[in-house]
């Protein structure tokens, strides 16, 4: 990534992309009758940004997306849940990114998804003040593994596609 302006433009582009994906995904009904389970396609963009640009940049894009998404969701508690899941997921993926080879990027994504759901579960427990909510844990774990693997593979394809346009990795 050359130059400050190019970097800024690319970050803005990724933020817009992530927000768009997030809004569109919100229109798709959940495929399973467990509250809180969704595909998490927006995380494809976060992880891609982390690989291509870096952890700090991915964090900025994520935070911008979360703040902007509250405008579309129209509620403050949505920010809280998004932050709890998003920040934890970002931290875990950032910590693991350097430890796995490129072919195992989807593993990083799975751990990120697990952290995301764990963060949301903790936030939900804090908000509702009920420990019974942790019964969702196993279901959310299973869901995170499936969705995380899926979005991880999506990320790997996207990173590979970006390389064709000379947008390389910059870890």
């Amino acid at each position: 990534m050359r130059g400050k302006t190019q970097k800024l433009v690319f970050m803005a582009l990724l933020t817009a992309l992530e927000l768009t994906v997030w809004v569109i995904e919100g229109q798709i009904p959940a495929p399973v009758p467990v509250p809180g389970v969704k595909l998490g396609l927006a995380s494809v963009v976060t992880l891609t940004a982390m690989v291509v640009m870096g952890r700090k940049e991915a964090g900025c894009i994520l935070l911008a997306r979360i703040v902007l998404s509250a405008l579309f969701a129209g509620s403050f508690s949505a920010i809280l849940f998004s932050l709890a899941g998003g920040v934890l997921s970002w931290a875990v993926m950032g910590a693991l990114l350097g430890l796995f080879p490129e072919k195992l990027l989807w593993v990083v994504s799975v751990f990120g998804a697990i952290a995301h759901n764990a963060g949301q579960l903790l936030a939900a427990a804090a908000v509702t003040r009920t420990a019974a909510i942790f019964w969702y844990g196993p279901a959310l774990l299973a869901a995170a593994i499936v969705t995380g693997a899926f979005t991880g593979l999506g990320t790997m394809y996207l990173v590979r596609a970006l390389e064709k346009y000379q947008i390389g990795r910059n870890r």
Binding site: P101, L104, V110, W135, Y136, G137, P138, L141, A142, I145
Partner: peptide
């Protein structure tokens, strides 16, 4: 290594789904 992670995550997902289906909350 890929096989290892696939097997590990597959087992964890099956375990999680199993626990939830057997002992899930009164949703």
């Amino acid at each position: 290594k890929t096989l290892f992670w696939v097997v590990l995550f597959g087992a964890l997902a099956a375990l999680g789904a199993g626990i939830y289906l057997l002992h899930g909350p009164a949703v």
